[in-house]
Design a protein around this nucleic acid. Sequence first.
DNA 1: TATGAATGAGTCTTCATTCAT
DNA 2: GATGAATGAAGACTCATTCAT
Lengths: 193, 193, 193, 193
Amino acid sequence: MSDAVLRRRRDPQGRRQEIVAAAAELIVEVGVSALTHRMIAARAGVPLGATTQYFTTLDELRTAALGHLASEVDVRMGSIRSAFLTRGTSPEVITELILQGLADARALEADRAVVTAAVNDPQLRELARRWSAELAGFLTADYGQERAKAASIFIDGVLWHARIHDEQLDGSLIASALAGILGAPERPSPVSH
Amino acid sequence: MSDAVLRRRRDPQGRRQEIVAAAAELIVEVGVSALTHRMIAARAGVPLGATTQYFTTLDELRTAALGHLASEVDVRMGSIRSAFLTRGTSPEVITELILQGLADARALEADRAVVTAAVNDPQLRELARRWSAELAGFLTADYGQERAKAASIFIDGVLWHARIHDEQLDGSLIASALAGILGAPERPSPVSH
Amino acid sequence: MSDAVLRRRRDPQGRRQEIVAAAAELIVEVGVSALTHRMIAARAGVPLGATTQYFTTLDELRTAALGHLASEVDVRMGSIRSAFLTRGTSPEVITELILQGLADARALEADRAVVTAAVNDPQLRELARRWSAELAGFLTADYGQERAKAASIFIDGVLWHARIHDEQLDGSLIASALAGILGAPERPSPVSH
Amino acid sequence: MSDAVLRRRRDPQGRRQEIVAAAAELIVEVGVSALTHRMIAARAGVPLGATTQYFTTLDELRTAALGHLASEVDVRMGSIRSAFLTRGTSPEVITELILQGLADARALEADRAVVTAAVNDPQLRELARRWSAELAGFLTADYGQERAKAASIFIDGVLWHARIHDEQLDGSLIASALAGILGAPERPSPVSH
DNA sequence: TATGAATGAGTCTTCATTCAT
DNA sequence: GATGAATGAAGACTCATTCAT
């Protein structure tokens, strides 16, 4: 009991999470390749040994952290899906969701960090592809496969644009472009009217 | 000593180029942050010391390599401009140019490598922004600023898509999307008919 | 891997000391500017990495080693002071202390190493000045400031002489010179008779 | 002839001297161990290759430069000797010569650089010993061997003092100390009266 | 002969990883 | 289990030295 006070409360699962979260933060800030055990330990506020206790290699930890970021994106993806389900997939709704995404700097950075890393990481590429397909999938029912895919490509462009440019993209520009890409719904969206 | 090493023929200019080219290749393959002197020397087929003879620091070499890639993009940008001047800016022409770009894997990789690196490098960001603006600029005369910008964003999306996905993007998808985004020309393009 | 290496027993404090001591030895032997991590590690009998584990930079280690030597000098300075207090400051007593100092090769070397390094190191210069002033201070009460300072300068000369020449300096030479420099005590030393 | 214009005038001896002089300057400024070919070439305003053309190894060049400094000291030694011959060796004359020496910062630095280097260089030690003996020799005729040696030791102390302290040493302090050390001349100096 | 490019040994430093405590 | 000391493999960078031109 007296020993339990000296040490941090035993909570392996929680500690693991802290480490992963710290690593994820750092990936967003300095990039995947700059990660080090020491850096992560410092950020997480855990001793150096803890980082190797929970993850055999740095690579394993890196993977976990990237997975963590990916899951953040997944969460957002889920909320987009439910927004589409309740509010339809009109260009205006999509635009609003995009603007919301752009406003959440943290989420944007997480997303771009993962996608950037994906360029040189097969596993992440798969992930990025899945998201891309998922987004397109949401729109396919209403606009057909081709247009849905084109829209998802455009959205990807918007996200990259935000990462490189400082200016805020105009909502009407996005909405018009989406409208142009998507054209009229192939069959009436169940919710949009 | 028994170093009967045969030294390479002297050609400073050429050697410098070889090193930069090797570094550029590696940036494309493994990303900027994974670059090391050793890796570059091995790829260029020069001794380790040669990399530091021509570039005081690795950073300097990195910058030169990125510049090399950037200039490749600039060249392509120039050829796009002249294509627009002679053939107009109809969605079909744009699409054809994009497909040409996608077909040139090397060019695509150079472009994406620079843009990826741009996320964390102010100087490259500026460059990326300039390209973005340039591309939009080509289209502004015919379609107005808003649509031109939206089209350039879409094109950015297409390039990213190509980098992440293995499948070949369909030309008709691109053309339709561009047509949707650009709408009818505000005033007839002088060349397109 | 087959590294059946047997690791040294853990003793951070001790190891740190070993490293500093090895560095100090080497400064005495080869001078400050010739120090290298490898040399120190070899002398201390520790692996290369140990030297950087305990000292972030070589400069930090150098400073610690110089400090180590300086503290040795400080100790001797203290014993000189107490000798003066109990036995007075007659030229004979001073001479005896100097001869003792010269006999302790190790102490002599420490002193010379620090003073030599002081020529190009502001911090050490301050230290050397302090010792100089301290030594003169011991003698000021009995001989006045001027003569005390002259004596301390002479003593410095003696120490240098010993470092450069191999011959042993004669005690009577030192005593006579000191007697000539110091003249008669301004007021009777409380202990010397 | 037209080729002679492109290249520096052929003057091997002169060039060699320039290099040695540059090296000597640098030894005084940064110490023996910091010397590099490149540094010397830059200072001398000659191409890198010239430094290895005239000296097989850096060590050889270093030695030459140290010799150059030594010869400067030798010159001063000669002028001291002749001053003693014409003006005698009274404490006042010695003091004046010392003060002159201290005033010539360049000469002082040369002397200290050589002596400092001598601590770890057998060849230079020999040189330093010779100077020491020489100086003592000048005074031996008038004051006997013991006192002469004591005086030369004191003078060495004065030179070191000047290197470490910023304050200017008082002439009267030096003169008094020398008078105390030397006592009355054993036989009248031929010139001093 | 004079020059500076070429080479690789050696330096400092950082870290992943192992493992004693 | 938890911690941080221990180790050595790289990595960036500097330079003496060699030698093609």
